[in-house]
């Protein structure tokens, strides 16, 4: 046994303890990855990411609620008055012009999930009211009264025909 192999060489021993701990720690962390990842949406859940909607049955002033990724999406056929009221302001809490929130002014497509805690707002008067904590949204889906911090989300969608949209892909 040479001098620096003796057990008294604590520097070497401490180094080995630290290195072993580090390697073991990395191993444990790596082993956690599959478990944590298994809790993320599975591929069949991911597969329901697009929804096709036929708009022809929705009369002006009418609303249809469709499911997209399990979430409600409001599709509103807006009347000229509603369009006018929506373009007249930019909203207060989360300002955004109406033109950026629609592709065609007569069709408003928004995710019907309150940006506060995820309740589904009710269509009431002009716009929507969320009954969970009293947030209000206008006819462009913009928040006009808190506690909701943001406007209703506009999902990615595109028109495949004059009266048909696909939600989930821009």
């Amino acid at each position: 046994m040479t001098e620096n192999e003796s057990p008294a060489n604590t520097g070497r021993r401490n180094f080995l303890i630290k290195a072993t701990t580090a390697v073991g720690g990395v191993g444990v962390a790596a082993a956690c990855v599959p478990f944590v990842a298994s809790m993320n949406p599975s591929s069949d859940v991911l597969a329901k990411a697009v929804t096709e909607v036929d708009l022809s049955g929705i009369t002006p002033g009418g609303v249809r609620t469709v499911a997209w990724q399990g979430k409600p999406v409001f599709i509103v056929h807006r009347t000229p008055e509603e369009i006018q009221a929506s373009t007249a302001t930019n909203g207060v809490i989360d300002p955004e012009p109406d033109s950026q929130r629609v592709q065609k002014p007569e069709w408003l497509v928004v995710v019907g999930v309150c940006t506060h805690m995820g309740c589904v707002p009710n269509k009431e008067g002009p716009g929507w009211t969320c009954h969970c904590h009293g947030s209000q949204y206008d006819d462009s889906g913009r928040v006009t009264r808190g506690p909701a911090p943001k406007n209703l989300e506009v999902p990615p969608y595109h028109f495949v025909a004059d009266n048909k949209i696909i939600i989930g892909k821009a």
Binding site: K71, G112, V120, N122, H131, C132
Partner: peptide, 9 residues
């Protein structure tokens, strides 16, 4: 019903 929140939760 994921499409309808009750009025008073």
């Amino acid at each position: 019903n994921p499409m309808q929140t009750p009025n008073h939760i």
